[in-house]
């Protein structure tokens, strides 16, 4: 009995390795599946359950399976360098040949492009080295909304099809810490907002009486 058991454990131990895949928020309903797309697996360092560091030349894709109408929520701390780039409404397979929306978060400005066609450039919103910033990217039907802290970088429509993926790549000589990463269903978030408004109105109505 001991030999088969040891054998089974040995197999489980050896086959457990899959170094280019990782998971964030493992106990969360919207578990995030990550895939290191860069050839060098060392360019991505997972530091906590929803935190990782991207080094130069890293390219990582994140997704929650089946979730395309989402709010992707990141706290980004640029450790050094010029910034990083988010790609969404694209897919990991065949990237970058697939169409995409690109969001550049740099120390010069924030820019949004669709297939390398610049849509907007906002000089007033910039990345500050070593300062955390909350970046939210929303896919809601044809609507996209990108905010940095409470400032809106872009709020508008696109004809690109919504996908599950958000790809992140640091710029040259850049390194960034991404923490507080959550992918939430935009429909349930809207529902929560709607319910909170109804609750607030009801509460006010009671007070008015």
């Amino acid at each position: 009995m001991r030999i088969p058991l040891c054998f089974l454990l040995l197999i489980l131990f050896i086959t457990g390795c899959h170094p280019d895949r990782f998971f964030l928020n493992k106990k969360d309903e919207n578990r995030i599946e990550g895939f290191i797309m860069s050839h060098d697996l060392e360019t991505v360092e997972i530091t906590a359950d929803n935190e990782f560091v991207l080094y130069e030349d890293a390219l990582v894709s994140l997704r929650t399976l089946g979730l395309t109408q989402l709010v992707a929520d990141f706290t980004v701390t640029l450790i050094n360098g010029e910034g990083l780039t988010f790609y969404f409404r694209t897919v990991q397979n065949g990237f970058p040949e697939q169409p995409y929306i690109k969001f550049d978060y740099t120390t010069d400005a924030c820019k949004v492009s669709e297939n390398e066609r610049l849509i907007v450039s906002v000089d007033s919103i910039k990345a500050k080295p070593k300062a955390p910033a909350r970046i939210k990217i929303m896919n809601d039907g044809k609507l996209i909304n990108i905010t940095v802290d409470c400032d809106t970088v872009f709020y508008g429509k696109t004809e690109l099809i919504a996908t599950e993926f958000v790809l992140i790549r640091p710029n040259q000589n850049s390194r960034a810490l991404l923490s507080g990463i959550f992918f939430n269903d935009v429909i349930s978030i809207n529902q929560e907002i709607r319910e909170s408004i109804i609750y607030e109105n009801t509460r006010k109505g009671i007070k008015q009486k």
Binding site: L65, T68, Q69, V91, Q92, G141, K142, I161, T163, F165
Partner: peptide
């Protein structure tokens, strides 16, 4: 590998 693409039409 499965990818989901959501097409929205208003």
């Amino acid at each position: 590998e499965t990818d989901v693409h959501t097409i929205s039409e208003r």
